[in-house]
Design a binder for these strands. Sequence first.
DNA 1: ATAAATTCTATTGATTTAGTATACTTTTGG
DNA 2: CCAAAAGTATACTAAATCAATAGAATTTAT
Lengths: 152, 152
Amino acid sequence: MRLSKRGEYGLRAMIALAEPDVNGNTPQMMQIKEISLREQISTKFLEQILLTLKNAGMLHSKMGVGGGYYLAKPAGEITLGQIFRVLDGPIAPIKCVSHMAYEPCGCPNEETCGLRLVMGDVRNAIVDILDYTSLADVVKRQNEIRKKISGV
Amino acid sequence: MRLSKRGEYGLRAMIALAEPDVNGNTPQMMQIKEISLREQISTKFLEQILLTLKNAGMLHSKMGVGGGYYLAKPAGEITLGQIFRVLDGPIAPIKCVSHMAYEPCGCPNEETCGLRLVMGDVRNAIVDILDYTSLADVVKRQNEIRKKISGV
DNA sequence: ATAAATTCTATTGATTTAGTATACTTTTGG
DNA sequence: CCAAAAGTATACTAAATCAATAGAATTTAT
């Protein structure tokens, strides 16, 4: 049940872009290099990932000197599930329980397949988290932890 | 978030072995061919998978004529999580939230990494299902559905 | 003895992953 | 206008993993 590096980097970059800039403004614009440096990601690889996200309509960009990427929508309207699906495909652990990319899996009787029943539960559990967690939620949670740590 | 074919086939085979035989006896002994035929799995591939499961101590086998595989423990004592880990490795979507195979993931600050927080939730949700569902639970659930269908 | 069954090891071909490489286009500062 | 900065777009590749295949060795019932 692995999240790919592509997915990991893309999610981390999106979370970085969802944070307000030094002046508290949002959405913040950041250059690829800035993100790759801060998040320890190969610049060239991140380039591809951000481009994919842009083509999927989740990011906007500004070319040329002083350019960069910024979120296409408010952070509260972009969920981790959406980002995940763009970069890593369907969330379901097995095709026969996928809502977005259903395919029969070849078991003798899909209707009474025990594995399918359980994997359906797993799918729902994951989707319930990823599709109901927005970038804004993540940023908020990060800030709460930071506050708790500095407050100790 | 994909379950591999190896994992899928292995889980299906173990569920088949957890069902009582025609006389209601359990654990039932089945030959590789029998399982591969019923579950539509390449016999040779299933061979490898069952061998792995045997070496992990979840199956016993009897060689020679009239031989076959059977569960090493009662179906109620084998969880899907155990089987999954043997065939597909750690359940966690990202190493830095794995209990069984922790590794840092390279983000600048693991403690306040938002992605890690969310993926930790995802891991727990999956583990809560797979580690608390035994083969016996799956068989029971299958039977309930079969009863419901034939009863309609 | 022999046929049926599991065991074990090696290999293969396809696909995916995680990048690199290269060249191009757009924008802006000077 | 020109050069540098920045994103755009493809193509390529090395390594790993996946799904399966092959074939020989071993064990057992009859």
